[in-house]
């Protein structure tokens, strides 16, 4: 991902060591190190801080109100407290969100194309995972997309991993024939259990992150994160040329990637149409 950002800079004419220097700081997975690392960058008087995920951006925001900060993979920048609005972030922070309300609909569309017989899809969601408005937008967009696809939706809640068994029982008793999982953190960290439960209940499932497909899920459709890191360089460029971060709207993903696990398809006795396989960015054999 760091390389994608550097490539983005190169595309804009920056040459490391000639007209730009990048000071890297890596918390090595330890959240508590982030504030000190962000403070180091402030002490170095860098021109801009790139802090891709939420905790890094929050840590940077806490140590400077003046140095511009660019994030690259924040799900809900408004409810995280990074910006006041997507259109006009205000303050010294802006960047790219990895979430868009259309994502759920796009996932359903991919699922329907991969498994055309789907007519009742369960939507696994976690109440409270996002800000209220974001959550409402996500669920509404799912309904709209499902209607257009002729798929009936069943919304099933899981507040934590302890709710998974009950959630899958609800899906099977309502005769759901597929599942889409919303892009929340808990579902990512619990992907192995979700993948196992989907297999056990023979539910073709579309996930929003490819890691779930690497773990054995049937398919994923989600933002191309390398592209977002590349685009973060565009923000840096504009800021270095004088733009104020607070005036630069938060952008959402524009490129998405489709990953399919052929082994899982076979285990579910599914034949994924050739047209879908050809379109996939990766097919795991």
């Amino acid at each position: 991902m760091r390389e994608a950002f550097r490539q983005g800079l190169r595309d804009l004419g920056y040459v490391e060591g000639r007209n730009v220097v990048i000071e890297y700081r890596d918390a090595e997975g330890k959240h508590e190190r982030l504030p000190a690392l962000a403070a180091e960058l402030v002490a170095l008087k860098v021109d801009v801080i790139v802090a891709p995920p939420t905790p890094a951006a929050l840590a940077a925001k806490q140590v400077t109100k003046t140095i511009p900060i660019v994030f690259a993979a924040v799900s809900d920048p408004v409810s995280s407290g990074l910006v006041t609005s997507l259109a006009r972030p205000g303050g010294n922070v802006t960047g790219l969100s990895d979430l868009t309300p259309e994502l759920v609909g796009k996932c359903l569309e991919q699922l329907k194309q991969a498994v055309p017989g789907v007519s009742r899809a369960a939507v696994l969601w976690q109440p409270g995972a996002f800000g209220e408005r974001t959550e409402k937008d996500l669920l509404k967009a799912a309904e709209v997309a499902a209607r257009a696809l002729g798929v009936r939706l069943q919304f099933v809640e899981a507040r934590g991993p302890d709710d998974f068994d009950r959630a899958f029982s609800k899906m099977t008793s309502a005769r759901a024939d597929a599942l889409t999982v919303l892009p929340t953190a808990m579902f990512v960290s619990e992907r192995r259990r979700l993948v196992d439960l989907a297999a056990k209940n023979r539910l073709p499932t579309v996930f929003p992150y490819r890691e779930s497909v690497d773990a054995g899920g049937l398919m994923s459709y989600g933002p191309n994160l390398a592209d977002m890191y590349r685009r973060a360089a565009t923000y840096v460029d504009k800021i270095l040329k004088g733009a104020k971060p607070g005036d630069l709207p938060v952008e959402q993903p524009t490129k998405f990637e489709l990953v399919i696990n052929a082994k899982t398809a076979k285990a579910l006795s599914l034949t994924i149409p050739q047209s879908v396989l050809l379109r996939a960015d990766q097919v795991i054999q």
Partner: peptide, 30 residues
């Protein structure tokens, strides 16, 4: 010469698990 600071939670990890950690951290900071 312009200087860009780049701070990550974990360069060696895939991003999705990071997103998970990110949200936990965001909640902890609230």
């Amino acid at each position: 010469m312009r200087v860009i600071g780049f701070v990550v939670l974990a360069a060696s990890l895939a991003l999705a698990p990071l997103a998970a950690e990110a949200q936990q951290a965001a909640k902890a900071l609230e």
